[in-house]
């Protein structure tokens, strides 16, 4: 099954959960871990695994053949992203605004527009034992994360257990990373910020009709309102990770929790079993 790990708020422990769940499962199952936080991919820090394949992610951007162009302005008119401007005797292309939709080249009456690939990032893969790891990296200065996330997700192998580390927020990169997963784990912390952003993330997964469960990280700080909210909304709290200096220290050093504190392995096994149960129950209802 495909389990995505999301949160709304940043820095709540998505990568901690995704990495440790994937590592625990890889004892028994064939696993894929996808780092879809392509703006700031951090999962690799916790894996002693070299990525040995790298593919460029390119999006098609227009190239104008000025020998054919009549400067009619049709391309600029159809481009809703304002990536082309036609002046007297000159066409300006702004590649970083281009979404690669192809409208300009398809609709140019003179067939003066071809497309060329522009690299906006890379997808890197590597294996170790039962684990296949795939991460996307957006190039510095590039705005568009979703095309890279789409390329990462093309590697999904449904035969494996797939864990997806999702970027923070609730807008298009999050949707791209979460959609088509079977279950979404929402990691939060018990503070007003955590609650506010959790409730946004819950709205998002409901809109995408994906079943979800909550993990409360740094449990013990803050207040009880996240738990109250989950009860009111009928969302299961699947795990609480306490505020613990040892856990924070391991994280800061890039050591997986289950490596530094092996007693946590059992906790992630139980977490997975509980997700499986919810998943099969929801399939019966469907």
């Amino acid at each position: 099954m495909i389990i995505s790990v999301a949160s709304g708020k940043g820095g709540t422990g998505k990568t901690l959960v995704a990495v440790n769940l994937a590592l625990t499962l890889s004892d028994v199952y064939r696993v894929q871990l996808l780092d879809c936080d392509v703006e700031e991919p951090d999962a690799h820090i916790f894996l002693h695994l070299a990525t040995n394949r790298s593919e460029a992610v390119v999006i098609p951007v227009p190239r104008i053949d000025e020998t054919k162009c009549t400067y009619c302005g049709r391309c600029a008119e159809v481009c809703v992203y304002n990536a082309i401007a036609v002046l007297k005797g000159k066409v300006l292309v702004f590649p970083e605004l281009c979404h690669g939709c192809g409208a300009c080249s398809y609709l140019c009456p003179e067939s003066a527009i071809s497309e060329e690939g522009r690299e906006i990032g890379v997808v890197e893969t590597g294996d170790s034992g039962n684990m296949e790891f795939i991460q996307g990296r957006l190039a510095i200065g590039e705005p568009m994360a979703p095309p890279i996330i789409r390329e990462v997700k093309k590697h999904i192998d449904r035969v494996r257990e797939v864990i997806i580390d999702v970027p923070p927020g609730t807008s298009c990169p999050v949707v791209e990373a979460v959609k088509s997963s079977d279950f979404c784990l929402l990691v939060t912390e018990p503070t007003p910020f955590g609650l506010n952003d959790l409730s946004l993330a819950v709205e998002l997964v409901r809109k995408l009709q994906i079943p979800c469960g909550v993990i409360i990280n740094r449990s013990g700080v803050g207040d009880e309102k996240v738990e109250q909210y989950c009860q009111e909304q009928g969302i299961p709290i699947l795990l609480k990770i306490p505020l613990d200096r040892n856990i924070a220290t391991l994280y800061s050093k890039g050591i997986p929790l289950i490596a530094g504190m092996p007693e946590w392995r059992g906790v992630f096994v139980t977490l997975f079993q509980n997700i499986k149960q919810i998943d099969s129950a929801s399939r019966v209802v469907k």
């Binding site: 820095g11 990568t15 703006e39 700031e40 951090d42 820090i45 510095i140 200065g141 994280y251 800061s252 050093k253 890039g254």
Partner: peptide, 21 residues
């Protein structure tokens, strides 16, 4: 920035973006 390896990794990337602009 927080003094974690993830924080340092992400710092380098956000510095890159600031310098780019």
């Amino acid at each position: 920035i927080e003094p974690t390896l993830s924080g340092i990794h992400d710092l380098e990337r956000v510095i890159g973006v600031c310098r780019h602009f």
